[in-house]
Design a binder for these strands. Structure first.
Lengths: 342, 342
DNA sequence: ATGAAAGCGCTAACAA
DNA sequence: TTGTTAGCGCTTTCAT
């Protein structure tokens, strides 16, 4: 036997009050006498009544649903972020409707249209690029949006990232302090702001020291492509390959270390030092023990949620763009730098 | 300037038809003349109209939202499954509303109540245990539910798992074929059906060979606890520790291998062979190269979605319980078995 | 503080 | 095939 959900009208009948009284009892800001509250709560409990979120959303215009766009979960930074985001939003009475989207602009646009169909209260776009029409459409629709782990130059969008430029600088700083002379870079996807910023900071610092990139290859943020890039860059005589490499994220970094050690038989950090970016949990596992720049996921998530909910609740005074500094975590995949102190 | 969403009434006015005509044009099964369809589509396109999913859900009773309960994403099997589930559902016009829930029965119950508030069309519960009241409540509410990667003995719930008992047997079979004499087990969470089944199959096969577990410790499916279990089990003279260990999942398996190799200085598989369960991508990385039983995520996801949507669309004839066989993937963390052929 | 009444945007009978 | 009508379950004026 399948039973219909209990409605507020049924609760009202049993409690001997009007249906609007029931609504008030279940609406945080509303006023009702203690007597009414008691009667209604009792009747509701007896009947197992729970307000229908969708009906509430229809009339109030607030669905308490946040649309989350995410490209892929293979890079372990994202599951971690997703878990934290979801928990943080849950604590504040929201829930996450997930949309997987290949990171191509037309796909993303389609997906955001779909999100809008659900009357979400806000959107978090994790590591995807949006067309300017799209962000305009969301703005016009009055749906707040925050970019997570991507900035969008030249727009008024709110975003939260780590300070990727500073992070890139730290990497260069450390490799220089270690005395490296032939420094390579395995890049992520060139369309990503994170890539551009990390590399810009990295190269700028090298230039300040009178060095230039010794080698560069693209890994597209994919492990397989990064592995191939590592083969191309390192399957050479010692003096023709880098003695240190900055890989644009940990996910690629692991693949690169695997190629260096297990395919090419190179020693890390003996023959080549490796630094990556993110500090996902695996980076600290002894099998990799990889030096990396930490992206402070907890703080990034907290900021993202704060900004989004402030905008949703009308407590915001315009877009906020936050870049959070993360430390360089020095581990065994790099040599010790003389006199280095952090 | 924030503009209100376009309604079907506005489209109707512009197209010179009734509001229900607009509705019909956007409702797959409904009938409308070509002329009407054209007029409506044109007007809709000009206005940028898109149906309000929530309003549709209210009256039709179908939200096209699937509630997904998941305990944690740290074990890389889950992000992978989540990504595939979400993609598969998206392709069929559904979306996933995510609920993180600590795997304690009261937490889960609360969370499922919340899910019900959203009038979801169905629920997928990944690796969590449900109270029988709860599953009864969902059944009574007419909300189909499928358990993913957990079975629930003694209930009528649909579920999809790998064949964990057979998997456990395969592990024992292989370790016996390798000639191991002191076989240990690092278990997951004893409340999990997967744990119980894997261990049952494993131990049964050992018994058939006249062996018993040489050692057993609990890791609770957590990496840290598994690492501690490994220390307790292996920090001993050679003849007092296992020469092979079956770890209940990959996530713990990596931690165990790290302890064995990097803390205790043991050789894998020289001193001790390691087999785990899941075959997440990392298991094939050369830094671990871990023998493991594959859980066929693609097929598990496909089955889960098929079962759930069949129940939602009323094409189901009762609960279905599917256990999918997965192969033992032999890698370098175990010795070669004499004359073994798969 | 409370009830009556008016919708939110849509689908699904029901007539025509 | 089409328009008219009646809600889905709720929040929110507006009176009282």
């Amino acid at each position: 036997m399948v039973e219909r959900p209990v409605t507020s009208a049924e609760v009202a009948a049993r409690a001997g009050v009007s249906q609007s009284a029931v609504s008030r009892v279940f609406t945080p800001g509303a006023s009702a006498s203690k007597a009414t509250v008691d009667k209604v709560r009792k009747a509701a409990a007896e009947l197992g009544y729970r307000p229908n979120v969708l009906a509430r959303a229809m009339v109030s215009g607030k669905s308490r649903i946040i649309g989350l766009v995410v490209a892929y979960l293979e890079n372990h930074f994202y599951p971690e972020a997703l878990e934290k985001l979801s928990n943080a939003l849950q604590e504040r009475g929201y829930h996450v409707l997930i949309f997987m989207a290949a990171n191509t602009s037309d796909k993303i646009d389609d997906v955001v249209e779909e999100i809008l169909d659900y009357q979400v209260d806000g959107i978090i776009a994790a590591s995807v690029a949006l067309s300017s029409q799209l962000s305009e459409r969301c703005r016009a629709a009055g749906i707040p949006m925050v970019l997570f782990n991507r900035s969008q130059p030249g727009t008024e969008l709110s975003y939260v990232t780590s300070n990727n430029r500073a992070g890139g600088r730290k990497v260069a700083e450390y490799l220089l302090a270690c005395g490296h002379q032939r420094i390579g870079h395995i890049a992520g996807w060139d369309g990503a702001s994170t890539q551009a910023d990390r590399e810009a900071g990295f190269v700028a610092r090298l230039h300040e020291a009178g060095q230039d990139l010794f080698a560069r290859a693209g890994g597209d943020f994919h492990a397989d492509k990064a592995a191939q890039a590592a083969r191309d860059m390192f399957d050479k005589p010692a003096d023709q390959r880098p003695d240190a490499v900055f890989v644009a994220n940990d996910h690629m970094g692991f693949a690169v270390m695997d190629v260096l050690r297990f395919e090419l038989g190179l020693s890390v950090p003996g023959d080549v030092a490796v630094i990556a970016y993110d500090d996902v949990p695996i980076a600290s596992w002894p099998a990799y023990d990889m030096t990396t720049v930490r992206q402070p996921a907890n703080r990034m998530v907290a900021e993202t949620v704060d900004i989004l909910l402030a905008e949703i609740e009308g407590k915001s005074d315009g877009p906020r763009q936050v870049e959070i500094d993360g430390p360089l975590i020095i581990r065994g995949s790099t040599r010790k730098a003389e006199g280095w102190n952090e």
